[in-house]
Structures are given as C-alpha cells and as structure tokens.
Design a protein around this nucleic acid. Sequence first.
DNA 1: CGGGATACTGGTCAAATGTCCAGTCATGCT
DNA 2: AGCATGACTGGACATTTGACCAGTATCCCG
Lengths: 198, 198
Amino acid sequence: MLTKRQQEILRYVQTHQREHGVIPSQREIQAHFGFASVNAVDCHLAALEKKGALVRHPGMARGIVLPHAHQVLDIPIFGTIPAGSPSANEQMADGHLAIDPALFGLRPREEVYSLRVRGDSMEGAGIQDGDLVVMACRPPKHRDIVGALVDGEATLKRLVINRGKPVLMPENPKYRPIVPTEELLIQGVYVGHVRVHK
Amino acid sequence: MLTKRQQEILRYVQTHQREHGVIPSQREIQAHFGFASVNAVDCHLAALEKKGALVRHPGMARGIVLPHAHQVLDIPIFGTIPAGSPSANEQMADGHLAIDPALFGLRPREEVYSLRVRGDSMEGAGIQDGDLVVMACRPPKHRDIVGALVDGEATLKRLVINRGKPVLMPENPKYRPIVPTEELLIQGVYVGHVRVHK
DNA sequence: CGGGATACTGGTCAAATGTCCAGTCATGCT
DNA sequence: AGCATGACTGGACATTTGACCAGTATCCCG
C-alpha cells in the first residue's frame, strides 16, 4: 500500500513523537531527510493522508494525528475486587499502571481499571496469583472472564450462561463452579493482564 | 504546589492531547477559558513549567511536552526471537509496547525488548501462545526464564544449571528439556509479560 | 504514445503561533 | 504601608509553519 519512501516519512513522524513528545513540523521533516523543498514533505503527507495512514488538521501547526498513536492511559490499580465503580473511589487506588489503550483494543473513552489477582482459581486461563488484570467496564458476554460480586463476595471467574442462568466457572480443577443464589454484579470484563516477574 | 487555576490549565492540555491527539495552541487554550489575552495563557504555562508540571520548547508551535508521557518506555516488539542485539535491528520491530519501567523493576538504562510468544512450551509458567514477553538484556541467573539461541534455534525456556552444564527446561510435560550440544546464546532474561485478550 | 502516480526543486504568501512589554486588580505576608 | 505573587487585559511583533503555484524527471500501465 505505502511506498518505501512514504513508510520512511511515516516512521520518522512516529519516532519523533515518541522520542520528543511533539509532532515534527514539515520543515523539521524536510531537514531530517535533506529535502531542498518543504513541498516534498507536503506532498508525502498528502499522500499518506489520502491512504489513511494519518490525519491532518488543515492550517494547524504540527497538526498531524497518527491514528494508532501510542497514547498512554494511567489506570488505577486496586488491591482487591472493588466494591463499587472504580471512578467513584479512585482515591483507594494502590498505584497506577501505564498501558496503551490501542494495544488492549479499548474504545476511546472506555473506563478501565486494574486488579491484583489473589489465588489460583484462574490458573487454567494463564492468570496467576499476583498478576495485574486489566478490566474494562462494558457489558459482559457469554464466556467472558469477569470481575463479579456474587452474594457479597468479590471474585474473578469465567461467566457462562447455562439455560439462561449465569454460572461463574473457575479454570482450575481444584475449585467448583459458583452458582449465584442471591445477587450477581458484574463489575468489569477482562481484557488482558500484565505480569511482573518476582 | 499548583494553584487551582494552574491545575485547570494543565488538565485541559492533557485532555486535549488525549482526545484530539494534538497539543492545544496558546490561542486555543485562551478560547477555551475565555481569556481576553493570550498572555494569560503564556503566564500560566510559564508558571507550570517553572513548577516542573510541563516542558516547553521555546519558539515551537504547540511545543508543550507533558513529562508524564516520558515516564513510559516504548519498547520494540519483535515477531520472533531476534538473532542479534535488539538495538541493532530495531527497524525490524513489528510495533511498540508502552510499559512503565518502574513497574517491571528495570534499572535506569537497561535495554529491553519484547517478543510475541509462539507455542505452548512455557504454559506451566503461565506464558501462553500469543503473549508478549518483556525481555531485559542482563546476565542470566539459575532458574531464570531466558530467550536463547540454542544450536541455531531460537526459544524461550527456563535456564537450569545442572552440574555446571546449562539445560533449557520447558514448563509443559509435552516437551523435553533441551541440552545444548553446540552453542547456547542467551539473548535476554524474562522480566514479565503482557497478554491482550483475543 | 498519453496519463497518472511518485518524488522531488524553488519559491511565495498568509495564517498560525510563541514571545514580550506595559499595565490593572486582588490577596496575602511582613 | 510596602511588596511579592497570582491572574489577568490589550496590543505589538517576529517566527514558525502550512498551503500552494510552477516546474522537472522517472516509472508503470493501457
């Protein structure tokens, strides 16, 4: 799709933003590639925009927006499954985790938080004790791994709908499925996790 | 430290970058707060810079850099175990992963890269097919999980020193330990990993 | 051969933008 | 009262910067 030269230009813009925190101006790009004219840059950017590799804001200085920009989201880490909305008690956060929302396939303004896993009930899904699971606040689907408040207790399990009734399945033969008797509150859907060795 | 007004300005700049992908110009900030003069913005930005809340590039349009963005490390993601030093062939990177170096317990200038895992040979360690493992370039210790080049083949295994001889142990009963016959090149030590669901 | 795309040189121009000077007003401190 | 600081108004100015016009050369496609 993109020509070799166009890839070079795009790559430079990405690298420049990553390393300097600022989008390069056309003249900075020009200087980097040794062009004798700014127009060379302008044409390349126009081509890149036409191909959807970036978006330009007309008339705006450094007005290039990279669609897959690595913007970093600081999400709160809770020690345990939270009892309410994560935004409501953000001051209870143990720390913050810097993640790339694009990497985790998050929608623009989706609310996200993180939990430190305790126990080995989801070991079969590759989630171990001490892992930081990333949870999104979105409606759960069948077979999603969810953070749930069931009969007053917080837990991380796979949600299965069995004959119209929800069941929480662990992924470890040592544990048994949980069938909610009173209440079942889904507080987040698992979208990924991070493990730090030791 | 920051006054209420300064916090408002800073928050607007942060929000604007997150939602539009571009740093606002002084006149855009002015318009948002309804200031009659750009100088109001300029003074606030100067104060914020003096207090270390942001960095400005003099003379540069939209030249505000939020220091927060620099706390995260953008590390290259390779599709397979690399054949050399990660910095030597960074142009081969498939993408970048934003991580917090402090979270992974990395030393200040430690070289780090990331690999996408293929296969299930480390499933017992909770590392699955498709996971992004974070590797640091440091000397391996006994029982570290390492990325290694053994007899011409690249692999991720646990390094065990058995009677002075290195053995690469998988963490899956389906596989057998690898005893290097010719060469063993350790190319990185596992420091953690990230999984993105689906 | 002609047309379109790519990849430029060389230059102009107006708009976008950061910087700075001179004040005003209120608040809190000494 | 005197002074520093924060939070502005109002305006001027040089630079930075994007947009654009006119060409040139190459290559591929039909």
